[in-house]
Amino acid sequence: MQTEVTFTASDGTTLPGVLTAPTGVTGPGPALVMIYEAFGMTDEMRRVAHDLAADGYTVLIPDLFARGPIKPICVARAMRTAQRGEGRELDDLEAARRWLAELPDVDGDRIGTIGFCLGGSFALLLARTGRYKVSAPFYSGRIDLPRSCPVVASYGGRDITTRGYPELLEARLEAMDVPHDVVTYPEAGHSFFTRTSGMTGSLVARSPLHAEYHAPSAADAHRRIVAFFREHLG
């Protein structure tokens, strides 16, 4: 079941989000804070949340672009926060996590995070906080990790924007002795896990990011992240 919800940010602002709950699950269970890609709250992000809920996870997608009427400014501000590692979007994500943890069907001690593109960078930033049991970034930017929860990360080998980072991330996680599963899919590009339709999809597919859906890689990545979640969230 997918519903529109609201939660209160630390400054008192009411922010919207989308909550997707699994069916046929009784008692408090594991949950995920999901951070969307730069396109925002699309039908494709809702579909991904549905798929994760079908695997037994309550999924909250907070709308980080809801504070301003001009979306490109919101995107640029979020990108700046991701680069700096501090900013209002991270505060809003923490408010979303706290709201999610208080739901009667959610075990507040079993919350993970998953993010795509811009959201992947946020997922890694959240991995440093000590508040999440697991993080699943997809094609994230380069994030410094002084510490981390377990990480299952996925990248496309044809994506020039992340080239070299998966190896650095894996080496860092190994050095910290953090459980991890970092995979680069050689035939996939950026955004291989989701479908981008219309002219935008055609343009990004022809870009150096090779950003288009790649079904075999997406299917394997889904299998991996669910297995990793089962191990670290239950």
Rank of each mutant, 00 (worst) to 15 (best):
M1D: 15
Q2Y: 00
Q2R: 14
T3V: 14
E4Y: 05
E4I: 15
V5K: 04
F7L: 01
F7V: 09
T8F: 07
S10E: 07
D11M: 02
T13G: 05
T14W: 08
T14S: 15
G17F: 08
V18E: 03
P22M: 04
G24C: 03
G27Q: 03
G29L: 03
A31S: 01
M34F: 10
Y36D: 14
Y36H: 13
Y36K: 03
E37A: 13
A38C: 05
T42R: 02
D43H: 07
E44V: 00
E44A: 00
M45A: 04
V48R: 06
H50C: 10
L52Y: 11
L52P: 04
D55Q: 14
D55N: 13
V59I: 14
V59N: 04
V59R: 01
L60N: 01
P62H: 02
D63Y: 00
L64H: 01
F65I: 14
F65L: 11
A66E: 02
R67M: 05
G68H: 15
P69M: 10
P69A: 14
K71L: 04
K71R: 06
P72G: 10
A76H: 02
R77P: 00
R80C: 11
Q83I: 11
Q83S: 12
Q83E: 12
G87M: 06
E89N: 08
L93P: 01
A96L: 02
R97C: 04
E102N: 12
D105C: 15
V106I: 10
D107S: 10
R110G: 08
R110M: 06
T113K: 00
T113G: 02
F116I: 13
G119E: 01
A123C: 07
L124E: 09
L124Y: 11
L125P: 03
L125Y: 10
R128V: 08
R128Q: 10
T129R: 01
T129P: 00
K133H: 07
V134A: 09
S135G: 07
F138I: 10
S140C: 11
I143M: 03
D144P: 05
P146L: 08
R147P: 08
S148V: 03
C149F: 00
C149E: 01
A153S: 06
S154K: 13
Y155K: 06
G157M: 15
R158H: 07
R163C: 12
G164A: 08
Y165S: 02
P166M: 11
E167K: 14
E167G: 14
L168D: 13
L168E: 15
L168R: 15
E170D: 06
R172T: 10
L173V: 04
A175K: 15
M176L: 13
D177W: 12
V178K: 07
D181S: 03
V183Y: 05
V183N: 04
P186L: 09
E187V: 03
G189S: 11
H190P: 09
F193M: 15
T194M: 13
M199Y: 07
M199P: 07
G201P: 01
V204I: 10
V204P: 04
A205L: 14
L209S: 13
L209Q: 08
H210I: 11
E212P: 07
A215N: 03
A218M: 09
D220V: 15
A221L: 05
H222L: 14
H222C: 10
R223W: 09
I225A: 11
F229Q: 02
R230F: 04
E231F: 05
H232C: 07
G234A: 02
